[in-house]
């Protein structure tokens, strides 16, 4: 057992975990942040993607102890109160989900992609390639791609939530 401390969604948190505890289990079971999902548990599906020190990462493949001292953002940390993050709003607007299980990871990966490439600088091919670490079994991806392109363009125009998105 070890005490780990990190910043999650802007809040300093700490907890006692076994050395083998995965970050996703620390987030879900100790912090109650159940928005981050465990899909495949074999590092392939991307449902567990969160941001660790500003970079998209699979929280099922990182030990909580490895993330000690890091800054973590989960899907719960994106919205500004009742105001959705532009990527969340675009997924809603464009029906970028059906069952919703992959959606938290899909959105965290999309925010990372837009931040990395720059808002407004994505095309369809870049979105499809950029999201190839996230599997969706419902949508056929079409509406997800539309949502990410729409969000990217909205963020380039300085849509609400831009500053928040950059921080995430």
């Amino acid at each position: 057992m070890a005490k780990v401390s990190m910043t999650v969604n802007g809040r300093a948190v700490s907890g006692d975990v076994e050395d083998r505890t995965l970050l996703v289990h620390f987030l879900r079971e100790q912090l109650g942040l159940t928005g981050t999902h465990v899909g495949c548990d074999t590092s392939q599906c991307g449902a567990c993607v969160v941001h660790v020190d500003g970079k998209a990462a699979k929280s099922c493949t990182i030990l909580a102890a490895q993330a000690a001292g890091s800054t973590v953002v989960t899907i719960e940390g994106l919205a500004n109160g009742a105001e959705l993050h532009p990527v969340q709003a675009a997924f809603k607007e464009h029906h970028g989900l059906q069952c919703g299980f992959c959606t938290p990871g899909m959105i965290m990966a999309s925010v990372d992609l837009i931040n990395r490439v720059g808002p407004g600088k994505l095309d369809e091919k870049a979105v499809r390639e950029g999201l190839d670490g996230n599997i969706c079994r419902c949508t056929g991806y079409h509406n997800i791609v539309q949502a990410v392109l729409s969000a990217s363009n909205a963020m380039a125009k300085g849509g609400k939530g831009k500053a928040k998105a950059k921080a995430a």
């Binding site: 990462a57 699979k58 990182i62 990966a109």
Partner: peptide, 9 residues
């Protein structure tokens, strides 16, 4: 290599 999330780690 892998996907973007893998490449970050």
């Amino acid at each position: 290599i892998g996907d973007q999330h893998v490449r970050h780690r």
